[in-house]
Design a protein around this nucleic acid. Structure first.
Length: 977
RNA sequence: GGACGCAUAGCUCAGCUGGUUAGAGCGUCUCGUUUACACCGAGAAGGUCCCAGGUUCGAAUCCUGGUGCGUCCACCA
């Protein structure tokens, strides 16, 4: 007796060992897997297929298989398209929307991973070069804020000041790298077939080169400029925010009305009003017409100010007094006005949220806290008109930390979205409708590619949202005053602080300039700047020199960028359509002259069972890892893919996931049955893979049973439907159809029938083998169809079938030869009869173990033949003792129930006599039929229906009417009354 | 204020380009330890397809209006 922990063993060794029971399955395992465990003297099993003594576990325990299977996939190298077998000409590529390295993955990420993995695995099995590129996002502000909070929790007051730039960044990087590892592990747990050899990070060296290059060419084209503009400033993050990084919170506050010279002005923010010097009224406002153009001295917070009155249409006559003063430095609207009229822009509040010297005696005080004090000064001067205590307005806050935003004028870097530049067209995948060298603005290209459907958004209603957003797009502020991120690739000669002051002509380049005294801009770039380059920066741009050598053939491949760009599809949540999708379109069309992707598939948000967002404070978070642990990755994936539609939010509950866990187990047991029956007594001579292959012969022999033809036909139909749905991004429908077929048809009907056919065919080896053949054929193909959805359980089962990995098995071809509609129709008669008998048994409470007898009258000979051929199936499935087919059923009598079906009338002989309920049942049945007949007859009484409806529809209705009438007649003739 | 989405069985949702006696899963009820599976099987009950108009021979499906819920954008005089 030998004891091995694991490893390859030469076959002979094992075969030659006495006392070791080697079952058929083990022998088979040894041939295929060559890996064998010996635990004790008796219990031996192959750890690949977990079979012990010819047994497959009764329940599928996901945990026991998943990690091992993922490791096997990784080892195979098949996640990398360069290693895929066969000649593959078509490509499929998709980039993973890089998760932020701020922590762990949530259900939103799980949806993304599940859907994208379905896409990728589907493409791979269809023989495409399937590439799914992983990566993570440094998420500048988000990550920096998170680390700052953590450091502050550990007792630091101002981490940035205390640690300094270099040390602080080290801490952030450490956190980011830990977070990265967690994320990668989670993605693997989900079963994501990502090509880890191509993994990228938005802040690594390669991506930095892409970022700097993009910055430089945009700068050279005059699209990036440095300018003074109002920005959203977060006094806590000490950084600017993009317009769409600002969130609004409804808030009740006081709204003040002050007397300002001859007018009354309203404001919610008196602390910004120190330097108001201009009154704006509407040119058509009769109340103030005589004031326009006048100058006057006005008593104000810090004494007399010189004010003048101008007319502009921005003033709203109906709002308040109709007059307003302008505060250029702290309001977007006012800033634009000030620029228009060239007024002085005086900063009242500084970057720390304190009042500047423009506030006179209030200088240095916190602006917000000084509000009441300022009001009381005005109060004393008698300048307060009145105060509205219940003013509700939207306070703009930082989307990261929730702090109130302070609009400030600052010197920032911008991308000009309206300026025209000379478009550089791609050679290998040009954008249609635009010429090389054509003068265009970024906005125009962004609109063009979507309008001309060169980028398709799914669902298409989001195109409207997209266009609306672009119409209102202002120049994109790309600089951030934080440390974690890509440094702005601009160097200044002067050593002076890079702040608001004017500087000498800077050097803009991919790398630092030669020579001394150059100082790099201290600002970093908006995280979406690097994210916008994601499809090209992960595929080798700007170098394009990553020539790959195929793993197998050694032949040279073109560069990744040529081969995989534009990517096939971008899959992401609709919540980042603007943040990311639009920016990618902008950056990619500009830099390489190609669209970044052909299709955009937008998934919805995952909410809790009550439809609320998942959040820590609500304590309603469902953690993907917990669910994987509890129900398995496959169940978790299915719950996120089935029952969800693009662009719509989904509600998730543990019960839903548990339901899909049940299904994975069902599939496992279907396989268990099929495989175990193959390994029955006499299969010794054949191994499964040989059994199943010549299905064509079987089909050609043309002696299959009705059930055989039915299941093959249904399977062919389902294969076609599932394939079509997947191609059209209808994942939910594909999954539902598959599940209904697998459970409702294959398991509930065909498996049971196969048992009967095997039983019947005991004397006839061939017939028994036929059933097994078909069972195995359908199972095998089903595993392939299910694999994109449930990669683990299908692969685990597959290990019992083949020594090759399922992940690279090819997708079933369309089996049009197997579709057999007459078989489907005929078989449905058998099904109907069985269901009706079961129904009657249930209604009359016939005990399960008790058989009943059935008399049948069958109208046409063909149906009679079908029923006769399937007698044993009907008997077993409906628990019938005797079936008698007679030409004329007795019209009256008791002790039986009557069921009328298409072409068949059945008497089910009941062990108990209950003529009363039977009478009532027939009454009810007839009543329903009469209503139905009436409904159809009404249609026909409408002449226009007959003349205008398509003939097929009319014909169909006529048939239905006839059927219903026949049925009713049978019931009536068989009822006593 | 502008735009978009959703409303179908107790719950979660399917129902694509108008023709079904409107479907599934979960839940409920009744029966069942048949050697694939109780994470199961068989059967059943359960719906004015939000309301009102319109188009049409025909509307859950298309149009208009309304109601309720949700989301995004704009907005801090």
């Amino acid at each position: 007796m030998f004891h091995l922990e694991s490893g390859r063993i030469p076959n002979e060794t094992v075969y030659g060992t006495e006392n070791l029971h080697i079952s058929y399955s083990m022998k088979w395992c040894l041939q295929n897997h060559r890996i064998f465990y010996t635990l004790t003297d008796v219990d031996s099993f192959c750890f690949i297929c977990s079979m012990a003594k010819n047994e497959i576990p009764k329940a599928y325990e996901a945990k026991q298989y998943e990690d091992e299977i993922y490791a096997a996939w990784e080892k195979s190298g098949f996640f990398n398209p360069d290693n895929l077998p066969g000649k593959r000409t078509e490509m499929f590529s998709i980039v993973l929307p890089p998760p932020n390295v701020t922590g762990t993955l949530h259900m939103g990420h799980a949806v993304m991973l599940a859907i994208e993995d379905v896409m990728t695995r589907f493409a791979r099995m269809r023989g495409k070069k399937a590439l799914w590129i992983p990566g993570t996002d440094h998420a500048a502000i988000a990550t920096q804020t998170k680390v700052e909070k953590l450091l502050m929790k550990d007792g630091m007051k101002d981490p940035r000041r205390e640690l300094g730039r270099e040390e602080f960044l080290k801490r952030v990087e450490k956190f980011a790298s830990e977070s990265h590892d967690v994320i990668v592990n989670q993605a693997k747990k989900m079963g994501a077939s990502l090509d880890w050899t191509r993994e990228a990070f938005t802040l690594d060296k390669v991506r930095n080169k892409a970022v700097n290059t993009a910055f430089k060419i945009m700068y050279d084209d005059g699209l990036i400029y440095r300018g003074d503009r109002m920005v959203n400033w977060c006094p806590r993050c000490k950084s600017t925010l993009a317009d769409d990084e600002v969130e609004y919170k409804e808030q009740k506050t006081k709204f003040y009305y002050f007397k300002y010279g001859p007018v009354v002005i309203g404001t919610a923010r008196p602390e910004t009003k120190f330097a108001d010097k201009v009154i704006v009224v509407h040119p058509n406002d009769d109340r103030y017409k005589n004031l326009i153009g006048k100058e006057m001295d006005v008593e104000w917070i810090e004494g007399i100010v010189k004010a003048k009155v101008i007319a502009d249409e921005v003033a709203d006559i109906s709002l308040g007094s109709g007059a307003m003063t302008i505060t250029p430095a702290h309001s977007f609207v006012d800033f634009d006005l000030a620029k228009k009229y060239d007024f002085e822009i005086l900063k009242i509040i500084d970057e720390d949220g304190n009042l500047t010297k423009a506030a006179g005696t209030f200088a240095g005080k916190n602006a917000h806290d000084s509000r009441e004090e300022i009001v009381s000064v005005l109060e004393k001067k008698g300048l307060v008109d009145h105060i509205d205590e219940d003013y509700v307005h939207n306070l703009s806050v930082c989307y990261r930390c929730g702090t109130a935003i302070e609009p400030l004028p600052k010197v920032q870097w911008f991308i000009d979205v309206n300026k025209q530049f000379s478009f550089r067209q791609s050679e290998h995948s040009p954008i249609k409708g635009i010429k090389n060298g054509q003068l265009l603005a970024l906005k125009e290209i962004m609109q063009h590619v979507v309008r001309t459907k060169q980028i398709r958004i799914i669902p298409d209603r989001f195109e409207k949202t997209y266009f609306h957003w672009i119409d209102n797009l202002r120049d994109w502020n790309i600089s951030r005053q934080i440390w974690y991120g890509h440094r702005v690739p601009v160097w200044y000669k002067q050593k002076s602080e890079v702040g608001d002051q004017k500087l000498e002509t800077p050097f803009v380049g991919v790398t630092a300039p030669e020579g001394e005294d150059w100082q790099q801009d201290t600002d970093t770039l908006d995280t979406w700047f690097s994210a916008g380059l994601w499809t090209i920066s992960t595929l080798g741009w700007p170098d394009q020199n990553n020539v790959l050598t195929s793993f197998h053939t050694g032949e040279k491949m073109s560069t990744d960028l040529e081969c995989y760009h534009p990517t096939s599809v971008l899959e992401t949540g609709y919540d980042i359509l603007f943040f990311w999708v639009a920016r990618m379109i902008l950056m990619t069309t500009y830099t390489v002259g190609e669209v970044p992707f052909r299709d955009v598939y937008l998934h919805g948000l995952v909410r809790d069972e009550q439809g609320r967002k998942m959040s820590k404070s609500l304590d309603n978070i469902i953690d993907p890892l917990d669910m994987i642990e509890k129900f398995g990755a496959d169940a978790t994936r299915l719950s996120l893919v089935i029952g969800t539609t693009p662009g719509n939010d989904t509600k998730l509950s543990e019960e839903k996931i548990a339901g899909y866990r049940n299904f994975t187990n069902k599939l496992w047991n279907i396989s268990r049955f099929v495989l175990l029956s193959l390994r029955g007594d006499e299969v010794d001579e054949v191994i499964p893979s040989e059994i199943a292959s010549p299905l064509d012969q079987l089909v050609a022999r043309n002696d299959m049973t009705l059930a055989d033809r039915w299941i093959l036909s249904r399977f062919a139909t389902v294969t076609k439907e599932v394939t079509d749905h997947l191609e059209n991004y209808e994942f939910s429908q594909a999954g539902e159809k598959l599940r209904d077929f697998t459970w409702g048809e294959f398991a509930d009907w065909y498996l049971e029938i196969a048992k009967i056919q095997k039983q019947d065919g005991i004397g006839n080896k061939q017939e028994a083998r036929d059933s097994e053949n078909i069972l195995f054929f359908v199972l095998k193909q089903l595993l392939v169809l299910w694999h994109p959805f449930m990669p683990f359980v299908t692969e685990a089962i597959w290990k019992n079938i083949s020594s090759d990995l399922l992940i690279v098995e090819s997708w079933p071809k369309e089996q049009t030869t197997n579709t057999d509609f007459s078989a489907e129709h005929e078989f449905s008669r058998v099904q109907q009869l069985i269901i009706s008998i079961r129904n009657i048994r249930s209604q009359y409470k016939v005990r399960q173990e008790q058989s009943v007898d059935v008399r049948l009258q069958i109208q046409d000979s063909h149906t009679r033949k079908i029923i006769e051929e399937n007698l044993s199936i009907i008997k077993t499935l409906a628990r019938v003792q005797d079936i008698e087919i007679i030409s004329q059923l007795p019209e009256f009598g008791s002790g039986f129930a009557v069921v009328v079906l298409d072409q068949i009338t059945a008497h089910i002989i009941l062990p108990i006599e209950d003529s009363k309920s039977e009478e009532a049942r027939i009454q009810k049945e007839s009543e329903k039929l009469r209503d139905y007949i009436l409904m159809i007859e009404n249609k026909f009484s409408d002449k226009e229906f007959v003349s205008k409806a398509p003939p097929q529809v009319v014909e169909k209705m006529r048939q239905k009417l006839q059927e219903a009438k026949d049925k009713l007649e049978s019931y009536v003739s068989h009822s006593k009354s």
